[in-house]
Computed example of a mutant assay.
Amino acid sequence: MRQAQAVLNVATPGRGLVEFTDQAANFVARSGMTQGVLNVFIQHTSASLLIQENADPDVCADLDRFFSRLVPDDPRLYRHTLEGADDMPAHIRAALTASQLAVPVMNGGLGLGRWQGLYVFEHRTSAQRRRVVLHLSGC
């Protein structure tokens, strides 16, 4: 069994989904491993990770609109408002989604389905740089 790690810096323009499938696939390819598990972890509490459809951008837009209705940016609803009206809603959105994903590695590539991609789901309204840790275990 071998292991490899890397940290991706994913720039987000603000709230929404940013795909990083290609960067993760390149990491797996460079590792030389053909089978195993890629663990993906985001080092933030106001952004999260999703495996989602990457064929139709309307899916990502609809998800973002749904979360905006589910968790509104209304400072009257929250005690934690020191970092802005979008911060506590960002924490709630992150709590409802994932901070870690496991993706199988098969035949030297990501074992994702045909229309699946890896995304940082940014929950803050301003641009951010998010750190995503990749840890591959395999052979």
Rank of each mutant, 00 (worst) to 15 (best):
Q100F: 10
L101P: 00
D74P: 13
L82K: 15
H80P: 06
I92P: 11
R93K: 15
D73N: 15
V71M: 00
D86I: 05
D87K: 08
S68P: 01
H80G: 05
Q100H: 14
Y78R: 13
E83Y: 11
G84T: 13
V71K: 00
T81K: 12
A95W: 02
V71F: 01
A95P: 04
A98W: 00
F66E: 09
P75W: 11
M88Y: 12
T81V: 07
T97E: 03
T81D: 10
D56L: 01
H80I: 00
P89K: 07
D86P: 02
P72L: 01
D73A: 11
E83C: 07
D87Q: 10
A95I: 13
L96T: 03
D58G: 03
A90H: 07
V71A: 01
D62P: 10
N54Y: 03
A95R: 02
D58R: 10
H80C: 00
L77A: 11
D73Q: 09
L101F: 06
R93T: 14
D86K: 13
D62I: 07
D56S: 07
A95M: 07
S99W: 08
D58S: 07
T97H: 06
L63A: 04
H91V: 12
E53S: 08
M88G: 09
E53L: 09
D56K: 03
D56W: 00
R65N: 14
V71E: 00
P75E: 14
F67H: 03
H91W: 11
R79D: 03
D87A: 05
R69M: 11
A98L: 09
